[in-house]
């Protein structure tokens, strides 16, 4: 798990795919990308999200997520999680989860589970910034 400043760039995504491909035991990679959406709220459009995090706890909780995924899905070979901190504009990527496994079903299910756990367990906060520069704190459902 890494917290990175600003968005997850395409070059970083390629790098992660290339690295995962080095493991020849994997038969499937499931890649999830979370993107900042141009939400329309009360007549205003979101232009960016500012993320903040309790970094030490994020790393500890992410380690727990890794352990839980590895124990539930024995076929998983590797887990990569990147999350942004700081400002990410609409259309940019703020979360990457990539899970490699022996077979597709484990890769897909483990990736889906990891994304849910990330949203539930990681102490990360986001403030939506609107086009008129007003701001609003958001929380996950």
């Amino acid at each position: 798990m890494h917290l990175i400043n600003g968005p997850v760039h395409i070059s970083k995504i390629s790098e992660i795919i290339a690295k995962a491909s080095d493991n020849k035991e994997s038969g499937a990679h499931s890649l999830f990308l979370g993107q900042v959406r141009r939400d329309h709220i009360e007549g205003k459009y979101v232009s960016a999200i500012e993320y903040s995090a309790y970094e030490e706890m994020v790393i500890m909780e992410a380690n727990k997520i890794n352990k839980s995924i590895l124990s539930e899905f024995s076929n998983v070979k590797s887990i990569e999680i990147l999350h942004s901190k700081g400002l990410v504009k609409t259309g940019e990527i703020s979360l990457l989860v990539m899970i490699s496994a022996g077979h597709r079903q484990d890769a897909i299910n483990a990736c889906s589970k990891a994304v849910e756990l990330i949203k539930e367990k990681l102490p990360i906060w986001k403030k939506e910034i609107f086009e008129d520069n007003s701001e609003q704190w958001q929380e996950n459902d």
Partner: peptide, 10 residues
Amino acid sequence: IAYLPPFAGG
């Protein structure tokens, strides 16, 4: 000690 509002990652 940390005061943590509801999480909003992802």
